[in-house]
Design a protein around this nucleic acid. Structure first.
Length: 613
RNA sequence: GCCCACGUGGCUCAGUGGUAGAGCACAUCCUUGGUAAGGAUGGGGUCGCCAGUUCAAUUCUGGCCGUGGGCUCCA
């Protein structure tokens, strides 16, 4: 479903990286090579350029690449023993490659390395490649971007210049991909957010701190209602906790040790000079919930205890990673913590996964898979990154894996991406622009409650034999944060929200001034039913009113004139549907209320009819 | 944070070493209009901020702030 790439395409992309490197070394002699892999939509290569280049140089480099392809250079490979390989790379003047060759010998114990040659170009590379550059379609790739990238991705290292290219098996695929990218630009939530007056991010407030306008507030309020309803049905209980907390709590939870980088600096009570207690804006809600759990003795009969909060949290994200609503510094999470026994973990996890599926089905979201992110026992920095409890990690990971299998949802496993306190499951969606995007995460925590207990906070329950036990905790946020989820939905729907989510659900358009009174009357009737209706009282022509209602992507436009007044009716134009219909006021109201209550997506009139059956 | 690019009215953008323009939006008036832009008039910008060069800077240079694309998908 996602990013399935044929062996042939992979060879083409990887070979194109070599062709790019050859072209760049011709264009900028003396340029040193970094890495140049095939990636999900093409390839890139990192260079230390002898002289800088800009976007304007890309067409010239692409032209050089086409010439190389036309030459029909054949790829051949040879194996060199490590010392010979390093000597060779020295002769070639490739310090980065030589460094990597040494590392492969030292750390991975390789004894020989492969070199690929095509035409005048030689590169240390694992392959595989096409037989000849003539096998690369010359009209199915495009250099599209230049960006900085650290050598080995480490910001302590030299910054190299990365050139990205898209590459496919034929011209049509490239075009399809480019169209998707263009569509993504059109639907960008930052653009739609401004056009539809949903939110702003203002310098006076600060980067990464979005402000919701009334239209946007409607969307997040409706999402929150949805979350609260579904969670009520699933037995969650709501709580409210403060956004500010003593640093000592985060010492207990481990956040100050393992998560401090993402936290805002401490505020000191009693002024800078005094020995006051330090307070922090919370980066997560879990410590507060654990305190609530520990606030009185709990019985195993109370478990699972599902504690939910739409909690505001604050994270000091790196300035360069901020992005519209999808990467912010102040956010409101659809958060809950499920306290359960060891034996209940799997069943609760299955329920949580099922909740995800119900949300996605209702929102008509597809193209996703679940990614099980595990700890990496071989990570040399593991002790700094993860709670040190191998048996705990193993049990937790296995329970999630079994829950995934039982739920029969598409999933993959990756090492090294876990939270510091436990493995997690991320939901990866394919965006409009055909990129992978993490929407929500669920984490299984087997470590933090124990830390509370170790620090004298009784985060335990009494089991059936009267003994104290530390619960397992599932952290889950299927609707992610308001910010991130709204950004995703706006792009998925292209700003055209289903009626239940639409900021303005009905716009009434009197065809002339004398029908304003009737429009106001119908509007009042709709608003009595809690339908978000407005009248267009401007002196614009009907055509203009329709255009403006359409541009605002309002799901229901009601045209009201003499015919409607006489029949006590409304003429309905649905967004995206050509055919108009006429209903009595009562019937239109009833239909719309059903549609809103069911949270349905109406794309053709038959969808609306089906609701009334 | 780092690399590259960008920063002109609310929005989209043009333009210039001699203190600025268009369309949309907004306001007022005319039009009372039946299915995606009726017409006229008008208000609105110390050209991101701070320095420097210059007789003169929105334009050139530097710094800062902000935005955008990237920053291990690994021979």
């Amino acid at each position: 479903m996602l990013n399935e790439v044929s062996e042939n395409l992979h060879r083409i992309r990887h070979s194109l990286a070599h062709v790019l490197a050859q072209a760049v070394q011709k264009y900028r002699p003396g340029t040193k090579l970094g890495f140049g892999p095939a990636i999900s939509d093409g390839f890139y290569y990192d260079f230390l350029l002898s002289e800088p280049i800009s976007d304007e140089d890309l067409p010239a480099i692409q032209k050089l690449m086409v010439e190389i392809i036309k030459e029909g250079q054949e790829f051949s490979s040879e194996e060199l023993a490590i010392p010979d390989a390093i000597a060779r790379l020295g002769e070639m003047g490739e310090p980065y490659k030589a460094e990597y060759a040494q590392e492969l010998a030292d750390k991975n114990g390789l004894e020989s390395l492969t070199f690929y040659t095509n035409g005048p170009f030689v590169d240390m590379c694992e392959g595989p490649h096409v037989e000849t550059t003539r096998n690369i379609p010359r009209n199915a790739f495009k250099l599209h971007n230049i960006a900085g990238a650290y050598w080995r991705g480490d910001e302590k290292n030299q910054m190299l210049t990365r050139i990205y290219g898209w590459a496919f098996e034929d011209k049509k695929q490239l075009r399809t991909y480019q169209h998707a990218r263009e569509e993504a630009v059109k639907r960008d939530h930052r653009k739609l957010g401004a056009e539809l007056d949903l939110f702003i991010i203002d310098d006076h407030v600060g980067p990464g701190l979005p402000l919701w306008l009334p239209n946007g507030a409607v969307i997040i309020d409706e999402l929150q209602k949805l979350g609260e309803e579904f969670e009520f049905i699933d037995g969650y209980q709501r709580v409210h906790t403060p956004m500010l907390t003593k640093g000592s709590l985060y010492e207990i939870s481990g956040h100050l040790e393992l998560y401090k980088e993402a936290m805002f600096p401490a505020m000191k009570l009693g002024g800078e000079d005094e020995d006051g207690e330090e307070y922090y804006l919370r980066p997560m809600n879990c410590p507060h919930h654990h305190i609530l759990f520990a606030s009185r003795p709990r019985s195993y009969r109370d478990l699972p205890f599902r504690m939910a909060e739409y909690g505001h949290t604050f994270r000091n994200e790196r300035s360069g990673s901020l992005h519209g609503l999808s990467r912010v510094r102040a956010m409101c999470m659809n958060d809950a913590h499920i306290y359960c026994t060891k034996e209940q973990v799997r069943e609760e996890f299955v329920r949580v996964l099922d909740l995800h599926k119900r949300y996605y089905d209702l929102l008509e979201l597809d193209n996703y898979f679940f990614r099980l992110s595990m700890w990496d026992p071989d990570d040399p920095k593991g002790k700094e990154k993860y709670i040190d409890d191998p048996a705990g990690w193993e049990y937790a990971t296995n329970e999630i894996r079994e829950a995934m299998k039982e739920s029969n949802l598409p999933y993959r496993e990756v090492k090294g991406e876990a939270a510091f306190y436990g493995p997690k499951v991320d939901v990866q969606f394919l965006t409009v622009g055909l990129k992978e995007f993490t929407v929500s995460t669920t984490q299984l925590d087997f470590g933090i409650p124990q830390r509370f207990v170790d620090n004298g906070i009784d985060c335990t329950y009494i089991d059936s034999e009267g003994k104290k036990q530390v619960p397992f905790v599932i952290h889950r946020a299927p609707l992610s944060t308001h910010e991130r989820f709204a950004s995703f939905l706006i792009e998925r729907y292209g700003g055209a929200m289903p009626t239940w989510l639409a900021p303005v659900q009905v716009k009434l358009l009197p065809v002339g001034a004398e029908f304003c009174e009737y429009a106001n009357k119908v509007c009042a009737e709709l608003r009595k039913n809690f339908i978000r209706a407005e009248v267009d009282l401007s002196s614009d022509t009907l055509g203009k009113k329709i255009r403006q209602g359409t541009v605002r992507k309002i799901p229901n436009l009601l045209v009201l004139g003499a015919n409607e007044v006489e029949a006590e009716s409304v003429t309905v134009r649905r967004y995206g549907i050509k055919e108009q219909r006429n209903y009595s006021i009562a019937e239109f109201t009833a239909r719309l209320l059903t549609e809103i209550k069911e949270r349905k997506h109406v794309k053709v009139w038959e969808d609306a009819d089906a609701l009334m059956e």
